[in-house]
Design a protein around this nucleic acid. Structure first.
Length: 421
RNA sequence: GUGGCCGUAGCUCAGCUGGUGGUAGCGCCAGGUUGUGAUCCUGGAGGUCGGGGGUUCAAGUCCCCUCGGUCACCCCA
């Protein structure tokens, strides 16, 4: 056992998984940039107050924050999510609206780790500030769906709900409180505790003793204002217009306190685990205001990279990209030729690797095979004297041939093109 | 934070009611082929059995603690 290993809930992402992560982000960027979203890179650390607006009653804020005092005695925290940072950035820089931002990067929550749940975990996401239009809700949800489609996922379920306007939500919360309080001691102790802080989240309880009360709880639709109902109706109509299937889940509450109106969640179809929520989001009209900015509507979503990749594993899609180089240079004459040839090939846009330490030809050929290269370029004293190299196909059949050093790049270019067609 | 299960080579694992760590598979290195990989054959390296303590003549095996993983609750991505 090594003296040091990663802290709990933290891990190294090594190849080939790391390449898959990079490809994952690239696909996401491609999808959202095609809709006018631009990258924002907020800091990993912010004033604690930025995050406490997420929800005074949430574990994310009350128990799981990595917070500390810096050397200037500022109370700061590693971000547990990025929506609050994006809103803080909006207030700080006041970009013109609609402001469409996307992000990708790690967040930190001090939780007990589990599959699909880490203390440092990556999310990708988008946020739009300054637009109330229900069509934007549709666009945001549609981009999430499109991303899953581009990854190859076919079994992701979209669940949507509306929490109504703040006043609707408040009246609903009162009704829920009354309903659950009637349950008295039959309700689990944990839920009774949750009830005092945020009755909405009792709906999320998985404790069996709570199930009967949750089943008979009033539903949010009875409390929607006309405007809220119309907004939600427009969202549903828009999704249908785009052929995006969804289910309405009146108990979909979402964890963070800032959500209003449309909320949604993407759930993996194959993940039989408690961590099957791949991501989610919603409207959060009010968050910018809480952070000291003007009244500004907002909407966005965040997707967990780990969980989405687990779903990809389950569906057998989005494999790690092939890390192979094009060419592997084998040099039995000391390595100086390999140095020159790899440099020349790389400069010409042909990826090339080699071995080191002047190993035996057999060992170098093994390295060539392992590298996945389509061709081995072999140089020894014979080739050096003749100004040639030996070119050996490794993956297709075919005989090796001797080519003049001067023709190597052009020769390889055409043969690689041939091999890829 | 609470509870269940698990921890043996780089990886995947065998190891019975305690009795000398496995010719195990994959991977790695070398040789067979002194200039040819992937296939085949042969050989080799690589372990404080997660860590600490205890019981015992004897502990990978039993007990306690601890660290880590995993699953469920919780929370959430």
């Amino acid at each position: 056992m090594p003296a040091f290993q990663t802290s709990p809930g933290m891990r190294d992402i090594l190849a080939p998984e790391s390449a898959r992560w990079r490809a994952f982000t690239a696909v996401f960027a491609d999808v959202v940039e095609s809709a006018g979203y631009q990258l924002i890179i907020p800091p990993l650390m912010e004033d604690l107050g930025v995050f406490s607006r997420i929800g005074e009653a949430t574990d994310v804020v009350t128990k799981e924050m990595y917070d500390f005092f810096d050397k200037g005695d500022r109370h700061v925290a590693l971000r547990p999510e990025q929506t609050a940072s994006v809103c803080r950035a909006f207030v700080q820089h006041r970009p013109v609206t609609p402001w469409k931002a996307w992000y990708s990067g790690p967040n930190f929550r001090y939780e007990k780790p589990q599959r699909g749940r880490y203390r440092q975990f990556d999310q990708v996401g988008i946020e739009v500030l300054g637009v109330n239009d229900a069509h934007l809700d549709v666009e945001v949800i549609a981009l999430g769906s499109e991303f899953f489609r581009r990854l190859g996922l076919r079994q992701v379920e979209l669940r949507i709900n509306s929490l109504g306007e703040p006043a609707d939500r408040a009246r609903y919360v009162d009704a829920l409180r009354t309903h659950f309080e009637a349950g008295g001691e039959d309700l689990s102790a944990a839920s009774r505790d949750t009830l005092t802080k945020n009755p909405l989240r009792v709906l999320d309880s998985k404790r069996v003793s709570d199930a009967p009360y949750i089943a008979t709880a009033p539903t949010i639709d009875q409390f929607w204002s006309d405007d809220a109902a119309a907004h939600f109706h427009t969202v549903q109509a828009g999704l249908s217009q785009l052929d995006i299937s969804f289910v309405i889940d009146m108990k979909l509450v979402r964890g963070l306190d800032y959500y209003r109106h449309t909320t949604f969640e993407f759930v993996g179809g194959t993940l039989e685990s408690a961590q099957n929520a791949l991501g989610g989001g919603g409207r959060y009209d009010g968050l910018v205001e809480d952070l000291g900015g003007p009244t500004t509507p907002g909407i966005g979503f965040a997707l967990g990279v780990d969980r989405t990749l687990l779903a990809c594993d389950d569906e057998g899609v989005f494999a790690a990209p092939d890390p192979s180089v094009d060419v592997f240079v084998v040099d039995t004459a000391g390595g100086a030729s390999a140095l020159a040839i790899t440099a020349e090939l790389r400069a010409a846009g042909i990826s090339a690797d080699r071995s080191y330490d002047n190993r035996s030809m057999k060992a170098q050929m093994k390295g060539a095979n392992r590298s996945g290269a389509a061709f081995a370029v072999i140089v020894g004293t014979d080739e050096i004297d003749a100004g040639t190299v030996t070119l050996k196909p490794l993956r297709s059949g075919g005989e090796q041939s001797i080519v003049p050093m001067a023709h190597l790049v052009s020769d390889l270019r055409s043969r690689l093109q041939e091999a890829n067609s």
